[in-house]
Write a protein that binds this DNA or RNA. Structure first.
Lengths: 204, 204
DNA sequence: GTCATTTGTTTAGGATACTCAACAGCTTTA
DNA sequence: TAAAGCTGTTGAGTATCCTAAACAAATGAC
């Protein structure tokens, strides 16, 4: 059996191939490279981890998708956490001043997001001038992404939901939270709501 | 069969129990809480993820340890990466919402800096609500420190000097620069100037 | 050269993960 | 009072993971 686990069991019909893992190499390749960086053989790692060398081999060849428990056991042989393992990296003067009209509109309609700077590449912060029309909403679907974000309400009223907690915020109020917590913005008022926000790293 | 996967298969003899997962709740609890934060039922999530509701149930009860492939499929239903999922702080100790009066004043007088959050430790961004009285100035001495900073003028007029370049900015205008460049803020107008700014890393 | 070690790979079979479908409990609608 | 809708749980069967052991190839010792 030289199966490829990406076929994702026998579930969805054709089931489009699962992406490797965020960006970067797949689990098997990551493990192999990390193991070699540590100068270990499959058997040495297997012994430390309390699994068999065959398991290491199968994982590295992507012949199987290890269970979370097994992967943790294997990585404990280094040791390294699963999160670190999956995100590990294996391998002058810009424009300063922007006129209001130069802010780049990246979401027009009931919700307007105007970005400071043409693009966020090479920048640590993404700052935006946001405007929500009455009733406007970032969507039924909760947002969620890596990073941190904060903002101050400059005008109007903002209803902010973060990790299940809902709060009504008025002019001058502010927020700060981990962007991985599901969140949602909505204007429950009758006039435009304006917010200045910042997040890191840039997510658009 | 109500097995507990922590017994880690039939490998190592007693095999001390595998720790939940780094710090914080185990995979099952994390999944359950995250799912509820998103307001989804087991069946809804299962449908999005392309697995059965039974699988979600078994994972959440820690009756099984899902394979990495399966866990990824499940988390794609939100979506969120495995790494973020495992490091997510479920119970945010940090305060998220701040009333205007709660912003911490860190520079009173002609210049007022009001910080979002009591302190910036453990945070990636320092956001401030700044107010400059007419004629107010950050000082004859140019500022300079590591990091990046940006802001949007919310009211009044701001004269900003960065790396020798002086610019008059009005409501709605914005800036972004490397904080190592010497810089200075001044209000050349006759009414208060209000700015919302953000910088990283926090420098106070 | 032969033997001993080490390497990674592969096979068979038992252990576990996963699906399908049935089940019980709760809420809403008729 | 069903009846239909939802919720999460669970049992039986199948697909997959994981181990134990055998294997071939490469390396080093003598």
């Amino acid at each position: 059996m030289t199966g490829d686990f990406r076929r994702a069991h026998s579930s969805a019909p054709p089931a489009e191939p699962i992406e490797g893992e965020q960006k970067g190499p797949d689990v098997g390749t990551r493990l192999r490279e990390l193991r070699k960086m540590h100068g270990l053989s499959q058997r040495e790692l297997a012994k430390r981890a309390g699994v068999t060398n065959g398991t290491i081999s199968l994982i590295e060849k992507n012949s199987i998708s290890p269970s979370v428990g097994s992967l943790k056991k294997v990585l404990d042989g280094f040791p390294i956490s699963i999160a670190d393992f999956l995100t590990l990296e294996l391998k002058p003067r810009k424009k300063v001043f922007y006129q209001a009209k130069e802010l780049r509109e990246i979401a027009s309609g009931a919700v307007s997001f105007r970005l400071v700077g043409r693009d966020t590449r090479g920048r640590a912060i993404q700052m935006m001038h946001e405007r929500y029309a009455p009733g406007a909403d970032t969507g039924d679907e909760m947002l969620s992404h890596t990073g941190e974000e904060c903002g101050i309400v400059v005008a109007g009223v903002l209803e902010l939901t973060v990790g299940g907690e809902v709060r009504r915020m008025v002019t001058g109020d502010a927020y700060y939270f981990d962007s991985r917590l599901p969140h949602r913005f909505r204007n429950p008022g009758t006039v435009d709501c304006v917010v200045v926000s910042a997040c890191t790293p840039p997510s658009f």
